[in-house]
C-alpha cells in the first residue's frame, strides 16, 4: 500500500443535457489513502471537490457490474481497482464507449442489456411449461449445472461490448455478452430451443459470423469468462447446421 502520494485523476466530463456543455477532460488531485479504490477516490472527489460528478456504483464489491469504465486504457470495474496499481499516480477515467452517455462516467448499460435480452430472447425456454412445483424436481447432471454456472457469472457490466471493435463499428452486432448468453442457454438441457432456433438468432452477420475474433471481450472481462472458447463453440455449432 502506498501512502502519502497525491493522485492525479483525469476525468472525462460531459453533461449531454446541458445545452452549452462540450466533452472535456478535467484534472483533479486527491491524497491517496491505504487500500484506496477508484470507488473510494471518486466518492471523495464528489464529496469534497465537485458535487456534480456523475458515476455509477451499487454493490462496490465487484458483483453487480454497475461501475465499468475505462481506466488508463483498460475497461474494467472501478470498484475493485486499487489506486496502488498505478505507480505513476496518474489515472485517466473515460466512460465506456458504445453506450448511451448519461453524463461524465455514467452510461446506460441497463437499457442496452434489456434491449439485447428482448431481441435475442435471452431467457430459458423450458421444454415444458407445466411443471408441478409441489413434485420432486427433474434431475440434472451435476457437471452440467457447474458448467452452466460458469457462464452464468456474467454481470452485464458492458466491458466486452466496449472492448469490441466489431461492436463499435456495427451497432447491430450482438457482442460477446449476447453470444455468451446464447451459449449458456444452448448448453442448458432444460432449454427447448434447437441449434436451428439459435441459428435464426445469432447465425448471421450480427452474430457469430460477424465476430472477427479480436478478443477484446476475453482480454478485459472482469469475470474471466471463457469468451474465446464459447464463441468458437457456438460458431462450430452454427456451422454444423450448414451441413
Amino acid at each position: 500500500m502506498t501512502q502519502g502520494r497525491t493522485l492525479t485523476f483525469n476525468i472525462f466530463r460531459y453533461d449531454p443535457q446541458e445545452a452549452n456543455d462540450k466533452p472535456k477532460m478535467v484534472q483533479y488531485q486527491i491524497a491517496e489513502t491505504p487500500g484506496m479504490t477508484v470507488f473510494i477516490a471518486l466518492n471523495k472527489l464528489r464529496e469534497e471537490q465537485d458535487t456534480s460528478l456523475q458515476f455509477d456504483f451499487v454493490c462496490r464489491a465487484g458483483i453487480c457490474g454497475s461501475c465499468a469504465m475505462v481506466i488508463n486504457g483498460f475497461p474494467t470495474l472501478a470498484c475493485r481497482t486499487l489506486t496502488a496499481k498505478y505507480p505513476k499516480g496518474e489515472i485517466t477515467l473515460m466512460p465506456l464507449p458504445g453506450f448511451e452517455l448519461i453524463g461524465d462516467l455514467s452510461v446506460n448499460t441497463g437499457k442496452f442489456m434489456r434491449e439485447l435480452a428482448e431481441r435475442l430472447q435471452l431467457w430459458l425456454h423450458p421444454k415444458s411449461d407445466d411443471i408441478d412445483v409441489h413434485r420432486l424436481e427433474d434431475p440434472m447432471d451435476p457437471e452440467e449445472a457447474a458448467r452452466l454456472y460458469e457462464l452464468e457469472r456474467c454481470v452485464e457490466c458492458g466491458v466486452c461490448v466496449s472492448a469490441c471493435a466489431t461492436k463499435q463499428m456495427r451497432d447491430t452486432f450482438v457482442g460477446a455478452v449476447g453470444m455468451m448468453k446464447i451459449a449458456r442457454f444452448e448448453m442448458d438441457s432444460r432449454d427447448g430451443r434447437t441449434a436451428e432456433d439459435f441459428y435464426h438468432v445469432i447465425g448471421n452477420q450480427d452474430g457469430v459470423f460477424g465476430c472477427m475474433t479480436l478478443l477484446g471481450c476475453q482480454d478485459n472481462c472482469p469475470k474471466d469468462l471463457p469468451h474465446m472458447q464459447q464463441i468458437a463453440y457456438l460458431r462450430r455449432k452454427m456451422a454444423m447446421t450448414l451441413v
Binding site: 475505462v70 486504457g73 466496449s162 472492448a163 471493435a165 463499428m169 472477427m212 482480454d219 478485459n220
Partner: peptide, 29 residues
C-alpha cells in the same frame, strides 16, 4: 470486405474506440 469499416462513421467509431481502449489483438487486426 464486409468486415472492414467501409463508411466514415464506422472508421470514426473504430478510431475512437482504439484511442480509448488499449488492446493488442485489436491493433493486430
Amino acid at each position: 470486405l464486409q468486415k472492414l469499416p467501409m463508411s466514415l462513421a464506422q472508421q470514426k467509431a473504430l478510431r475512437l474506440q482504439m484511442q480509448t481502449i488499449n488492446h493488442g489483438d485489436t491493433r493486430l487486426w
